[in-house]
Design a protein around this nucleic acid. Structure first.
Lengths: 227, 227
DNA sequence: GATTTAAATGATTGATCAAAATAAGGAAGC
DNA sequence: GCTTCCTTATTTTGATCAATCATTTAAATC
């Protein structure tokens, strides 16, 4: 997992918060205050504020001027935008990664995929989500484009708070419907079949974000009815 | 509007630095120190450090731990990566923008293009570069995808320090060779011809960054010879 | 040229300021 | 009498600053 223990406090905060957000530990609409977080992490407010500033500047968190940071409540249109962007950028990264694929990378992907199956079978959602992230970024890292990885990372942080919506129904239906698509990615990397790898990524992003969008829409309708 | 300047100092610093970087006012390899900049801007080091942190986290500036920020010296491979990413993302944005095009947007683009011609004819490089930026982001803004705009903005900041290399030779040869391509973009937006608009953007990015890359390579060879 | 010392510089802290959210109180209206 | 709304005071909280600490660069000395 990508958690380099940097000496610099603000980066530590950024990494830890990022892991929490990616893991779906924050709910949309949740408020994050500098002082509370600083107290929890036993440090002064400054590094915490700097980490939050970075997340806000990336659009991961939302922050009005002189106000707390909040996890954004995304509308279906914003989910659609994220889907659109992720489809283009991640399929691109997946293609490039596949073209530079090696047996070693394919093995690493298979190993991660196996661990993921184990965690999923055990119902360990935390590990599950972490390994989903690990698998995909092991793939993307193969394209050796750090600027691109950074962009994708930021996009994943934006979808992070909504990942919980996928469990358990969507996840179950997917493993029933699409079979072992991570294995197909691994073998695609082995064979350097860029189109096949990109197509698997495309399906994953498309289906997952479509599902999330429908849940959000349904919830909005329900709230409207309630009043 | 009374004060278009953001109330928050760190954002002011970020905006000002960003404008300077985009305008090519910083040279690759140039060092930026917090205290100097803070003194120049008459403020304490804190907001300056936060703005620099943001630029570093975006990959616009380079910063080792506990070291000053420097404008990165890009190798040809890194320019190639930037070109690759920009080609994919900006062509995507251009297509979407064209699909949502209106006569008003086309008019605005034409107006900016005319101003650009005037500045270029007058040899006003500063205005020239600013208007090149304005034109392209007026186009991209039409797609109404704020997350995408943010990504492209960060990519432009990375190429900013190398824009000066395009003047005056490349700029002259382009206006001779490709004619009024910005007018073709404007009319493409009018006709909602996504493919045509994307193709013009593709050519622009491809040619400009290929040129920059060749200049860097040539300069590196020269330095090597000198020893 | 290597080692030690001094200066420069970034990171972190705690204090202070300002703005916003919240709580409290009271007046007006039903 | 009760509620509602507005005003005011208190508290919370973010931004900024200045001081301190730690590290790195440079300067100086041997």
């Amino acid at each position: 997992m990508i958690t380099p223990t940097t000496a610099v406090l603000r980066d530590q905060v950024y990494d830890r918060l990022g892991a929490l957000i990616r893991g779906g530990h924050f709910s949309p609409g949740e408020k994050i205050t500098i002082r509370d977080l600083a107290k929890n992490l036993s440090m002064s407010p400054t590094p915490v504020r700097e980490a939050l500033y970075r997340l806000i500047s990336e659009g991961v968190l939302q922050g009005e001027v002189n106000r707390s940071a909040v996890v954004p409540l995304l509308m279906p249109e914003q989910i659609a935008e994220l889907k659109d962007i992720r489809l283009h950028i991640e399929c691109f990264a997946a293609e490039r990664a596949a073209l530079k694929g090696t047996p070693e990378i394919a093995d690493a992907l298979r190993k991660t995929s196996e661990k993921l199956k184990t965690a999923r079978a055990a119902g360990d959602r935390r590990t599950d989500i972490a390994l989903v992230y690990k698998f995909q970024f092991e793939l993307y890292a193969a394209c050796s484009m750090p600027d691109l990885i950074r962009i994708i990372n930021s996009l994943w942080l934006k979808t992070g708070p909504y990942l919980n919506l996928l469990y358990p129904h969507y996840i179950a239906s997917i493993s029933a419907g699409r079979g072992d698509w991570r294995e197909r990615i691994a073998s695609g990397v082995e064979k350097r079949d860029a189109a096949a790898v990109a197509e698997e990524i495309r399906l994953d992003i498309d289906q997952a974000l479509t599902y999330i969008s429908s849940i959000i829409t349904a919830a909005a309708l329900l709230n409207q009815t309630r009043g």
